[in-house]
Design a protein around this nucleic acid. Structure first.
Lengths: 349, 349
DNA sequence: ATGAAAGCGCTAACAA
DNA sequence: TTGTTAGCGCTTTCAT
């Protein structure tokens, strides 16, 4: 059908339609009304373009317009339910706006972040969503230098608007749930909730720790520094640290606040070495949701961030006049154990 | 430091370095040796470019070279461990080759597949990795028409090379494991393995069903059509279907081969309505790996596809002379229950 | 050892 | 109502 040789250009269409390239251009991107091109011409051109299987060379258009029609998003990793959700929402909403989504992971590596953002800028992306950066300030500076509209998602930036999950609310809710479900073991050390995992240098983690502290203080009368263990996200690290904790306090704590799915993975790999009854008097919470984690041997209370809403508000902010820094918070949701929350294929209520 | 006005171009550098744009161009992309540009000139230009924070406009370069330096990959969804793994591997390997990875999900929707591929072609991507397409033939045809090198990943294409997981081997291995671990309940219907989930129209699923049948026949003397239930990937559907199955055969089967993680999610949401002891005489397997699924109330044998190897071989094929169709199979791995396989953060042995 | 010039495909003034 | 023209920033002959 169509395979003479190469992709047709507007000049080919112009020749076939006995019109000029600019007319074709105008027709093909809908701006022909205001250029007062006749209905007949427009239809003729359109028909020819269709017949030739024309599609614009987006690089040429981008070069001319000094923008590419692509929107970028950087995130730490794909292999994580929360970030995967974000990608999904981001793509859907970008397409809805006629933009081409480009999502790239930067592996929590500041050098990779800078490199990637540099590349995206070199491709003239129209705007950048920064969803998880180890060095947000550096990324922001690159954007500023390139005059690139950007927005921070799930972490607050100081040079541009941000939309973040309400980490305080989420962590307070989760902590409260844990405390309400406490089944004391009768041991002073184990009868406390422990906060486990993440990096206190991260904005999200620090807010969660604040909330954890405040809630413990309010409901239990206090909290000790030893109840906070936050030394990273790596599963291997988490495994070591959880083993050390159980060792130190002589068993499972009555409540454990796990700060990320990767941390949870590490914790689990240690938990399987314990007998089933060890969990009888322990209540577990995890900040972030995973459908399989909802069905473990023991009940797990989880917080699910509203990634779709985070992204939607971020698009609003990017589109807004005001480029100034400000932070919008989105409430996350508490998910009860044994609940499947709808994924992309899910038609669960 | 750098923020006079706009991004510098080669002409700016040329002026500052008292050289011509072509010299600058040659210096900046390393081809200056063969253009016999003097070491001194090269160094001078380089220094200036550095000082000005020059970085090439990739759209302009792409327009000129008729290729963009981007590699595309399409996949069904991000929110799935297997595909998330693929993205991660794809990105890493694309970057290693100096290419910019662009991963887009197409939601198992043929129209979206066509639209997305059209867009990627319009951006002049250098090559396309097709990892999961509902209508591979249509996608292939688009690529062919655009003369775009492409490779199929995890599904076989007929117009270009493919690298697929060895679904037969994986399914045979998993089935064999299930059968070896069979704990008969003493009921003729329940004492059989059941294959559950997926779409028999998919290449992968059909191969797995073949292997399931063959293995059952070899080890148990036969298999009945009623042991194969494959009516899609949606969790909701899986929940209905598993309920119907248990109803029909009067309880859990002694062995269940679950064909995808999304299916497993649906199955679990029904399983939680059952008493714990219901699982005592059942052995479960899942094709595809999830770290949390490894730690459910009951042991789960899983197959983990080697996405990194799949991608590596796909890059080899794209780079190769021979563009003809052929299929390379990669063996997947059996993962025992209670095992955490290293993820991006994992430092497990 | 380097520069001049053409042109990739498109858009947007500006003419007519 | 439409055509002409001038680039966007880069690479690449072809001349020096």
């Amino acid at each position: 059908m169509t395979s003479p040789k190469a992709k047709p250009t507007i000049y080919d269409i112009a020749r076939l339609g006995e019109a000029s390239a600019s007319t074709v251009s105008a027709v093909l991107n809908g701006s022909w009304r205001k250029r007062r091109i006749s209905q007949t011409t427009a239809e003729r051109i359109l028909a020819i373009a269709e017949a030739q299987g024309y599609s614009a060379n987006l690089q040429a258009r981008g070069l001319r317009r000094a923008r590419s029609g692509m929107v970028g998003m950087i995130l730490p990793v794909h292999d994580n339910r929360f970030f995967a959700d974000m990608s999904q929402s981001f793509e859907a909403q970008a397409r809805q706006r006629g933009l081409c989504p480009v999502v790239v992971s930067t592996l929590r590596d500041p050098a990779e972040e800078a490199r990637t953002v540099g590349t995206l800028i070199a491709y003239a992306i129209d705007s950048l969503f920064i969803a998880g950066a180890t060095d947000p300030a550096a990324v922001g500076e690159l954007c500023r230098a390139a005059d690139l509209p950007h927005v921070y998602v799930d972490l607050p930036g100081f040079d541009a608007p941000s939309v973040v999950s309400d980490n305080y609310l989420g962590a307070a809710t989760l902590t409260e749930t844990l405390v309400r479900n406490l089944a004391p073991a009768g041991d002073p050390l184990r009868d406390r909730p422990y906060f486990f995992g993440g990096d206190p240098g991260d904005y999200a983690t620090s807010r969660r720790i604040e909330a954890f502290r405040a809630t413990c203080t309010a409901m239990l009368g206090g909290v000790d520094d030893s109840q906070i263990i936050a030394r990273g996200y790596a599963p291997a690290r988490a495994r070591e640290d959880i083993a050390a904790l159980l060792d130190r306090i002589g068993g499972l704590p009555s409540a454990l606040f796990i700060n990320a799915l990767t941390v949870f993975e590490g914790v689990l790999s240690h938990f399987v070495t314990l007998p089933a009854q060890a969990f009888e008097r322990t209540v577990i919470g995890c900040y972030d949701y995973d459908p399989f984690a909802a069905f473990l041997q023991f009940p797990v209370h989880m917080i699910r961030q509203n990634s779709s809403e985070l992204i939607a508000r971020a698009f609003d902010l990017i589109g807004a006049e005001d480029r100034g820094p400000r932070v919008i918070e989105i409430a996350p949701e508490l998910i009860a154990p044994r609940t499947i929350y709808a994924g992309p294929f899910g038609e669960f209520g």
